[in-house]
Design a protein around this nucleic acid. Structure first.
Lengths: 145, 145
DNA sequence: TATTGTTATACTCTATAACTATA
DNA sequence: TATAGTTATAGAGTATAACAATA
């Protein structure tokens, strides 16, 4: 009887919630770049995928309030990682774009991440990796559902 | 060639990191109990599983520094959700136990979680749930590795 | 009048450093 | 001398409320 048991899903959500909260605390410390907060990194990742976006769009994607995104974008601009330009059609809005420096930084951080990954790999077997790879897209979907 | 490609794992970790950070922000808002922070909830969950623990043990399990756990335990005690007793063998340590009120609260919160779960269920198909259930224990392992 | 983004301010959570008590 | 927990303090990140400019 491989049916969809609500109880099993509730247990999974319970376990997921706890794991996500704990992992997020660890990830906060294991920063690939010391000068960038997790949300700043996440914004750069979004820009790398989507090309460019307005502060409002970024706030919605990162699940952060507009004033918080204002601050984050300002910090990234001060570090020379994004550029702010006027919106071509709506003068209230702005367009945020990543700089060449941000691309170089993302490449560098990818190398550091791989080092952390190597450490983790020692403690996970192939079956566990398989489960993680399978679940990753679902977690991403949940994150911006 | 379904072999263990390091590159695939790196991509999965990348995606996981982003999803975990975003999900943790959403979970922060979707609190089952308005008066309890995510870490407070997590501590109660740990106590429900392990019975009782010292503040130091809880700090290690939650990946939080001892002074932070002192504060969290004090808040839980003020809300009548845990009891603090002297350690029977070592007078430096204390023993934290959950109260009957905490058990009732966890039961109540379970009902609220199910409501949130019902909302999510509408957007995930059975294959996606299967992947989440399979990955949940791995994420828990990562969380306290 | 509604919407985008900003400024000013306050709150929550966690960390570090220094201290007390016990081992 | 080392360890468990606490107190005091500071910092990071985010939120809310009020405001400006534009639609």
């Amino acid at each position: 009887m491989p049916d969809l048991s609500h109880g099993d899903n509730a247990a999974a959500v319970n376990s997921l919630r706890s794991a996500v909260m704990r992992l997020s605390r660890r990830l906060k410390h294991q920063r690939v770049d010391e000068s960038l907060s997790p949300t700043e990194m996440s914004v750069l990742g979004t820009l790398a995928r989507c090309g460019s976006a307005t502060p409002g769009e970024l706030a919605r994607k990162e699940h952060v309030q507009p004033p918080s995104m204002t601050r984050i974008v300002a910090l990234l601009e001060a570090k020379g990682l994004v550029r702010l330009e006027p919106h071509p059609e709506d003068r209230r809005q702005k367009v945020v774009t990543q700089t060449e420096r941000a691309e170089a930084m993302l490449e560098e951080s990818r190398r550091k991440r791989n080092a952390w990954l190597a450490g983790l790999a020692a403690d996970l077997d192939e079956d566990e990796w398989k489960r993680l790879r399978a679940a990753a897209p679902v977690l991403e979907k949940l994150a911006h559902l």
